[in-house]
Design a protein around this nucleic acid. Structure first.
Lengths: 140, 140
DNA sequence: CATATATAAGACTAATTTAGTCTTATTAAG
DNA sequence: CTTAATAAGACTAAATTAGTCTTATATATG
């Protein structure tokens, strides 16, 4: 519970890699998949999604790959999550108002505040923050 | 993703109800289950768990039920989540260090900071906060 | 132009987690 | 003794997440 999905995790790993390698022409899905042990098909689909909304730019054909197309400082975790998983809500009623509780629920309003607080945290974390920091056992 | 489980949701509903009714002797699982349309067996198990760690106190036999056994101001969302779901981590590596990435992961350290920020939000939300606020369509 | 290496797209399956049910035992009030 | 509660745990169902497989298209390079 309250877990990020692998999709988001893999996207962060790939985006960080691209950011750190922006001097090079482009980074292929295969290259990232090999380096970080991510299933290629899965990573491909994630990168295709990011490419469709122009977070990264695809370069087709041999020697192709992807190039970062946003400023890391301006791209928040919330945006990434929205692109890959849809709107962020800690309970169903935080997103749509469908709820088996009908109108008996006694916690909707406080839960909404918790949800907003979490979204606020994620709004304030950008790809630059993810990219910047040193990780233990770092390869790139 | 990043969702609270029903267990936590039902626990909050029940705890809020008990808090708002602490003048009465005790509240039974059946009563809460009926009022909020929560499956009885499921709610029972949740309340048993909370009773084992003495967040609530069980009163057995006919006319039995549960009584709140903590000060709502001192009981945080983090504690509740820990009791019902175990330690809170937005990625597996936020909890234990088991990770298919081995030592190639490039985002562990920043993700840990995100995790801490979220835990911090939940630390600062107590049952009193949940209980206090008015909900729309409120019954009790 | 043939080949190798990329992305694009989507159907499909497997694995895991979450939600809910069912059964049996125990406790205490009336 | 009967009724209404909690206690405990095995079991099943549903939903979500993760991953695979297949086919098509694009392009650099020899």
């Amino acid at each position: 519970m309250l877990k990020l999905t692998r999709k988001v995790e893999y996207a962060l790993i790939a985006l960080r890699y691209m950011d750190r390698n922006k001097d090079r022409r482009c980074a292929s899905a295969k290259e990232i998949s090999d380096l970080y042990h991510i299933p290629l098909s899965l990573l491909s689909k994630i990168l295709q999604t990011l490419s469709k909304v122009e977070i990264i730019q695809a370069v087709q054909g041999a020697h192709g790959g992807y190039i970062l197309n946003i400023n890391p400082e301006d791209f928040s975790m919330t945006e990434l999550i929205n692109i890959l998983e849809g709107p962020l809500g800690i309970m169903d009623c935080s997103i749509d108002s469908e709820c088996s509780q009908l109108d008996t629920c006694n916690i909707k309003s406080p839960i909404t505040k918790v949800n907003n607080a979490i979204i606020n945290v994620l709004n304030n974390i950008t790809l630059a923050d993810i990219s910047e920091q040193q990780s233990t056992g770092l390869k790139i």
